[in-house]
Computed example of a mutant assay.
Amino acid sequence: MRKQVSKKSRLISVIVGILAVIWLIITFVPFMFMLFAALKEQFELMMGGVFDLPKKFYLGNFIEVFQGNIYNYFKNSIIVLVVSLVILLALSACAAYPLSRFKFKLNKPIYGIIVACMSVPIHVTLLPIFMMAIKTGMYDKIWALIGPYVAFNLPISVFILVTFMSNIPKELEEAAEIDGCNKYRIFYNVILPLSKPGLVTLAIYNGVAIWNEFSFTLVLTQSTKNRTLPLALWEYQGQYTMNVPMIMAVLTISMLPMLVAFAIGQDKLIKGMMAGAVKG
């Protein structure tokens, strides 16, 4: 029996390893194409093969990008990202706490509505939100992006945090009540500190989505000074042609912050996911 189990475990390990290598290739190849294209001149890219190594590392694309409006795009993206994440995490934590720890009649219906909102397509709401932004005077302002970003990421955030907070032992809450803590103090002093891995997971997950979001930025902003980084690509395409190496340079630059953030926080992300998935 032990030999059969060990053979099965080895076979599973081999299959998982093969799948991991295939997934690595699938994700790594586009990245290498983007990097190689960003280090080529436009003529060299058009005349050579797609995955040919650059004849020389041409940094002119990056220099020209930094001489443009990239700093303004970066500033807008960072402002929108930080404000949206702060509001999103605060609302998610405040909503998940009563749904996960209290028992009341409307608990399941409210939670069901929140979960159902996860299935609402973003593109269905583009026109109503566009009209709302015009009527409220928020059109072509970076602040118009914060509301949709928070609203569409809130259901999945509450769903994850409810699962995470439900796994916190109730004995800790009962001990805090014995010490004289009310529900507000229990939330801030007990539940919230223990939910940090889940909050970090949500910050990374939602941060990547907000940083790369394109649809609302395209619909709700018009002027260059109010656009975020995903729309920086528009600067490098004309009516009939586009500067592909320059676009690849912009993509490389825009991807680096999220890549660095994920590299720094990947251990907390994995711990948060595992902690939310295992019963306490």
Rank of each mutant, 00 (worst) to 15 (best):
I186A: 07
L256D: 04
A209K: 01
E235G: 12
P245I: 02
S215L: 13
F152G: 07
V158L: 05
P245F: 10
N206F: 08
L251H: 08
R227L: 09
F130N: 05
A261I: 04
V150I: 09
T252R: 10
E235R: 09
W211A: 04
V200W: 03
K225M: 10
V158A: 11
V260I: 13
M138N: 13
P155D: 01
D140L: 15
P193Q: 01
A144E: 04
L127T: 14
L127E: 05
Y236M: 09
E235W: 06
P128G: 10
V190S: 08
Y184Q: 11
V200A: 13
F216N: 00
M131H: 10
T221M: 09
F164I: 04
G265K: 04
L218E: 04
S157E: 00
A209G: 07
E213V: 07
V219Q: 00
N167I: 01
P257E: 01
Y139P: 00
L259A: 14
L126R: 10
A144C: 10
V162K: 07
P155Y: 03
E173A: 13
N212T: 12
Q222H: 15
M242R: 15
L251F: 02
G238R: 09
M138D: 06
T125K: 14
M132R: 01
L218G: 04
Q222M: 15
N189Q: 14
K170V: 02
S166T: 04
Y184N: 09
M255P: 00
G147D: 05
L220C: 07
K183A: 15
I186E: 07
Y188E: 01
F159T: 05
V260F: 14
W234A: 14
P169E: 09
A263I: 12
P148S: 12
T217D: 14
A176S: 12
I264G: 08
L199H: 07
R185S: 13
Y205Q: 04
H123N: 06
N167Y: 08
Y139G: 06
I247V: 07
T125Q: 13
L218W: 01
K141G: 05
C181G: 04
L154F: 05
Y205I: 02
G147Y: 15
E235M: 14
V150N: 04
Y205V: 00
E171D: 13
H123K: 10
L220P: 10
E177L: 15
N167T: 09
I168D: 06
W234N: 13
N226Y: 14
V162P: 02
F159M: 03
L251M: 11
V260K: 11
D140P: 02
R185N: 15
A261Q: 00
L127Y: 12
L220N: 03
L251Q: 11
L192G: 01
G265W: 03
P245R: 09
M131D: 01
G265Q: 00
S195N: 06
W143G: 11
E171W: 11
L145S: 03
Y205N: 07
